[in-house]
């Protein structure tokens, strides 16, 4: 009887310990996922067309190509006899 009681108490204690560890890992996972989402949002924000154009024009001193400077090449790629 006493052994069984001790075993039950030990088991309960172990479960609680594992519970604490699981919670700690869970919190870590939550933090990492949160960070991942923030980075995705940041990438999306940094790749905004307005920002890229501003950097290209102001910082890199680039210019928009005039229509005469644009050359279009019609691509017809043959792939195993089929047009791609």
């Amino acid at each position: 009887m006493i052994l069984t009681a001790f075993f039950a108490v030990w088991q309960r204690n172990e479960m609680i310990q594992i519970g604490y560890e699981t919670e700690a890992l869970q919190q870590k996972k939550t933090k990492l996922l949160r960070r991942q989402k923030e980075l995705i949002a940041e990438i999306s924000s940094l790749s905004a067309a307005e920002r890229i154009e501003r950097i290209a024009l102001e910082r890199l001193q680039m210019k928009s190509a005039d229509p005469g400077q644009r050359i279009y090449v019609a691509a017809e790629i043959q792939n195993h006899g089929e047009e791609e």
Binding site: G19, T22, E23
Partner: peptide
């Protein structure tokens, strides 16, 4: 969540 005497949660996804 199950809380202990100090209010900490155990078994977060029980």
């Amino acid at each position: 969540l199950e809380r202990d005497a100090f209010g900490h949660s155990v078994f977060p996804k029980g």
